[in-house]
Structures are given as structure tokens and as C-alpha cells.
Design a protein around this nucleic acid. Structure first.
Lengths: 118, 118
DNA sequence: CAGTTTCATAACTGATAGGTAATATACATA
DNA sequence: TATGTATATTACCTATCAGTTATGAAACTG
């Protein structure tokens, strides 16, 4: 799978609060489906669906323990997401700081500036 | 708006490759809708929709320049997303390293291990 | 003022997401 | 072997998403 496709799946998986809560729970250690479902007012199949989304995104993986299917975290894809964001965030921060500098300049010599460049 | 709700919007916005490309483009500087639409084989209204999603997520903002509506990046929400991920990624990495250590132990003394804990 | 550029909005469509209830499967245990 | 437990799968519904075309509204330009 391509990086872009993986980022689609990763970010989509992170976009749901139930799934983020599941990841947060798994950060404290492995857990079965029943354990993961317990805090939510939601059916067990709904949780299983969420787990499938997290699995497709590569954020979690499954073990086998009799009937249980305990899930655990997989950090790799999450790192990929952080990497993508960080790359742009740095540029964002830079342009933000450039904007701050500009604002300071403008406050030093205020004018009726309204138009943007071009 | 709540942090959780903001994270929903931010991650959902980042889950689309067109929107990520738009952010990447904006990292090189402000751009108009026409400029942003140019690289894509997609109608202008489609791009406007994507921009609306990015705006709702607070990832970009709009200026006014005659008929143009140049967009620029807003780093704040992106930082929030990084913060969320980083918090758990650290724990992920820790458990990953614990797993590495475990694997080393198992390789030192291999056995028919199959069942998980519990 | 007529025409062009830039962009937004509305109405529509097909696909996907997120939930449900019902059912099936695999294993443990009495 | 019968029953309970843990989980997956299926079929279904509704809402939202991502795209389209058509149209409209500002603002510049000749």
C-alpha cells in the first residue's frame, strides 16, 4: 500500500472519538473486545467494526487466546502520521512566526493595509 | 467547541489526499482558489468544498483580495492533533520497545509459545 | 456598461460510515 | 453433551461525503 493511502486510513481512523478512546485504552495495555466495549453505550458489533477500522489502518493488531481476540497497539502507522504532520507543522510555525514579525512591523508603522499580495 | 470535536474535524480533514495536498501547497505560501485547484483534475466547486472542510477544522483561513479569496495556513489545530498523537505514540513506543525486549528473550530461549496472557 | 474572472452556492447522485438486531461460530465448562 | 461466553458476520437503515452540473454574485477590465 502507498504511503498516501495509509495516511488516508490512519487519519480516518483517528477521526472518530470512540476509536481514539479505544487507542487510549490500549495504551494502558492489551484488552479484549468485551473489555474495550464496556465503557461505551454501544453494541458489541459496533465496537468490532471500529476495531476493524483500526486494524485496516494498521494501528492495532490481534492476538488469539481461546475465544478471546485481545488487541494491542501498533506504533508504526501512528509514527507515519506524526511525521506527515510534523513536516508541515514546522513550516506552519515558521510562517506563523513570519506573520508575527510582520504584525510587529505593522504596529510600528500602522497603515490602512487591506489588500493581499499579487 | 470541545477538543474532542475539534480533533474529529482535524483528523477527518487530514484523511483526504486532496486536502493534504492543499495543505502542502499552502505550506509554500498563500494561494487563491484557482491556484489551489489547478493541479487537480477536479471541478472548482469540489475544491471549494475541500477548502470549507479545512476551514471548519480551523486548519486554514481566508483573506479577501477583490474577487480573490486567498487561503493561508493556521497552525494551531494541527498542533493539537500532533499533541494528541504524541501523547499516545510515546506509550506506543514504550510498549514497542518492551515487545522488542520480549522478542530478544524469546529468541534466547525459543519455545512453543502460542497463547497470550490471561 | 458589457464582458470576464473568481469564487460560492444549490441541487443532485452514488458510495461509504456508523449504527442496529439477528445470527453464526468457536471455545470453555458443568 | 448442553450451555454459556466471546466475537464475528450479515443484512439493513440513515446520514454524511465527495463529486458533479448549473447558476449566481462580486469585482475587475475594456
Amino acid at each position: 500500500m502507498q504511503t498516501s493511502e495509509r495516511l488516508n486510513l490512519t487519519f480516518a481512523a483517528l477521526a472518530d472519538p470512540t476509536r481514539r478512546a479505544i487507542l487510549a485504552r490500549l495504551a494502558t495495555g492489551e484488552a479484549t473486545v468485551t473489555e474495550l466495549a464496556e465503557p461505551f453505550e454501544m453494541s458489541q458489533p459496533a465496537i468490532s467494526k471500529h476495531l476493524k477500522v483500526l486494524e485496516r489502518a494498521g494501528l492495532i493488531s490481534m492476538d488469539v487466546d481461546a475465544q478471546r481476540r485481545p488487541r494491542k497497539l501498533e506504533p508504526k502507522r501512528l509514527q507515519e502520521a506524526v511525521d506527515w504532520i510534523e513536516r508541515y507543522r514546522e513550516i506552519f510555525e515558521q510562517s506563523y512566526q513570519r506573520l508575527d514579525a510582520l504584525i510587529e512591523q505593522l504596529q510600528a508603522k500602522p497603515s490602512g493595509r487591506k489588500r493581499a499580495k499579487k
